[in-house]
Deep mutational scan, measured.
Amino acid sequence: EAHFQVQLEQLRSMGFLNREANLQALIATGGDVDAAVEKLRQS
């Protein structure tokens, strides 16, 4: 989780407030914030 701290903060600042969902999306996308946003929008 600490590995994705910067990305988690970016997602939070973009309005994605579900930390667990954000973390799962980042893990699934290897930390790619843009891909994580797409994944979160689809769910």
Rank of each mutant, 00 (worst) to 15 (best):
E1Q: 06
A2T: 08
H3I: 00
H3S: 11
H3E: 13
F4Q: 08
Q5C: 05
Q5N: 14
Q5S: 10
Q5L: 13
V6P: 12
Q7V: 03
Q7C: 03
Q7Y: 04
Q7S: 05
Q7I: 02
L8Y: 05
L8T: 09
E9K: 05
E9C: 03
Q10S: 09
Q10L: 04
L11R: 00
L11N: 00
R12M: 11
R12L: 07
R12A: 06
R12W: 07
S13Q: 15
S13N: 12
G15A: 05
G15T: 04
F16W: 13
F16R: 02
L17F: 15
L17A: 08
L17T: 15
N18K: 13
N18M: 14
N18D: 12
N18F: 05
N18Y: 02
N18G: 08
R19S: 08
R19M: 15
E20N: 12
E20W: 02
E20M: 09
E20Q: 07
E20V: 05
E20K: 13
E20S: 07
A21T: 14
A21E: 15
N22F: 00
N22W: 00
N22H: 00
N22E: 01
L23T: 13
L23Y: 15
L23R: 09
Q24V: 07
Q24D: 15
Q24G: 11
A25C: 09
A25T: 14
L26P: 00
I27F: 06
I27G: 10
T29V: 14
T29Q: 08
T29Y: 06
T29N: 15
T29F: 12
T29R: 04
G30R: 10
G31K: 03
G31Y: 13
D32N: 15
D32M: 09
D32W: 02
V33F: 03
V33E: 03
D34C: 08
D34T: 11
D34E: 14
D34W: 04
D34I: 05
A35K: 15
A35T: 10
A35W: 05
A36E: 00
A36S: 12
A36V: 06
A36F: 00
A36C: 08
V37L: 09
V37N: 05
E38F: 08
E38R: 08
K39T: 10
K39V: 07
K39G: 09
K39W: 07
K39D: 14
L40K: 01
L40Y: 03
R41I: 05
Q42C: 02
Q42H: 06
Q42I: 06
S43A: 03
S43Y: 02
